[in-house]
Design a protein around this nucleic acid. Structure first.
Length: 105
DNA sequence: CGACTGACGGTGC
DNA sequence: TGCACCGCCAGTC
């Protein structure tokens, strides 16, 4: 595990319930100019039973773009709805309203 | 060791 | 408005 992982995970753990952050925002907080892909890759290495709130990290458009079967979109949406976040649906894709960003875009 | 890839994003056309 | 291209860093082949 490189310290970069720890950076990402530490930041993600600080996202409050009911709020979300984008991959880009997380990477910037970790000191990278644009490490969005890295954040996604790092999250993909998490075990299924991780304590990291991975569901609170989404892409900058507000869409859930997860593809990993261990962490499906349905599961992510379910977890976030339990935290009070509401979704809209379009063409089979789910996206948030825009009032749930931990950091303004 | 080089090329490719990834839960992405910004820029440019 | 939508799409193609490039960059970000680490891991794998």
């Amino acid at each position: 595990m490189s310290s970069l992982y720890q950076q990402f995970f530490a930041i993600i753990r600080e996202i409050p319930s009911g709020k979300v952050a984008s991959y880009s925002q997380v990477s910037k907080l970790a000191g990278l100019h644009n490490g969005a892909r890295l954040v996604g890759w790092a999250l993909g290495t998490l075990p299924e039973n991780t304590t990291v709130p991975w569901q609170r990290v989404i892409n900058s458009k507000g869409y859930l773009s997860i593809r990993n079967p261990e962490f499906s979109v349905d599961r992510q949406r379910d977890l976030l709805e339990k935290e009070g976040i509401t979704f809209k649906e379009k063409d089979g894709l789910y996206y948030i309203n825009g009032d749930f960003w931990m950091i303004e875009k």
